[in-house]
Simulated assay, not measured.
Amino acid sequence: MRVKKQKRHRRAVRFYTSCFGFRQPFKVLCDGTFVHNLIVNRVAPADKALSNILGGSVKLFTTRCVLEELKRLGSAYSESLQAAHKLMIARCDHEDKKSAEACIAEIIGENNPEHFFVATQDFGLRKKFREVPGVPLIFGLRNALFLEPPSAFQHEFVKTSEEQRLHATELEYKMLKNRTKSTSTNEESGHSSDENKGPREMQPVKKDSARRRMDGKDRPQFKRKKAKAPNPLSCKKKKKDVNPKPSSDKESNAGNNATRSTSRKRKRSRKSKNLTEMDSK
Rank of each mutant, 00 (worst) to 15 (best):
M202P: 04
H167D: 08
K159M: 04
E162N: 07
D194F: 08
Q203C: 08
K177P: 00
M214F: 00
V205K: 10
R213E: 03
K217W: 03
N186V: 08
K225M: 07
N196H: 09
H167K: 14
E172T: 01
P230A: 04
E188G: 05
K226G: 02
D194Q: 12
E163K: 11
T169F: 01
R219L: 00
L233P: 01
Y173K: 15
T169V: 02
L171Q: 15
K238S: 06
P204L: 13
M175I: 12
T160G: 01
G190K: 13
R179Q: 15
G190C: 11
K226H: 07
S184N: 09
E162P: 00
E195H: 10
K238D: 06
A227W: 06
M175K: 15
E163H: 02
R219V: 00
S189Q: 14
K228E: 10
K239F: 01
R200Y: 09
T180K: 15
E187Y: 12
C235E: 15
K206C: 10
Q221T: 08
K206P: 04
H191E: 15
R179N: 12
C235H: 05
K238W: 02
M175L: 15
A229E: 07
G198C: 01
N231D: 11
S234G: 04
P230W: 01
T169Q: 01
